[in-house]
Amino acid sequence: MVNKIWGFFIIIGVVVCLLTGKVDVLNNEILECTKSSLDMIVKIFPVMALWLGIMNIATESGLLHKLSNLLSPLLQKLFPEIPKGHESLSLIASNISANMFGLGNAATPFGLKAMKSLQSLNDKKDTASRSMITFLVLNTSGVTIIPTTIISLRLMYGSTKPTEVVFACILATVISTIGGLIVDRILARRR
């Protein structure tokens, strides 16, 4: 999918540039993109390093674990098929808590473990269970409460109010999560 879109972007871009006589612009851009991508990675790198470091403290000190304990009762309602006290619930909670801080990369290992644990409850091993799909929807709708990466990047690019988007982000996330869960329930009932 990414491959097709990427190829499409380049083919269309080059052909249109050639047809409209923008060869110089194109040449310039092809050389320039290496510099701009290096600039970007230089901007992103320290931001990621900082938050990975902070998050590591939160993981090691058990703060993330505490937060996931708070979430467990709510999750029990969203995942009625999971037996009470099953380890997959706490793994899902850890994944969601890490996502809340806008740190998708810290969340992934918990997510993979949670899926494995959900698989142990699954009857048909090659087919996605309802709980798995609900968990997936929670992840794809994004449950970010503090978009740390975005705030830091805004600051890097000279925003005067880097945190002004936080409430808009939270509101949009809540709507997309609730909406996603409703669609999930409707589709689950249908089939």
């Binding site: 972007f9 380049i10 871009g13 249109v16 923008k22 194109l26 851009e29 993109c33």
Partner: peptide, 9 residues
């Protein structure tokens, strides 16, 4: 690379 060529066109 891809996006900028696309946008520049």
């Amino acid at each position: 690379f891809g996006i900028n060529i696309f946008l520049k066109s």
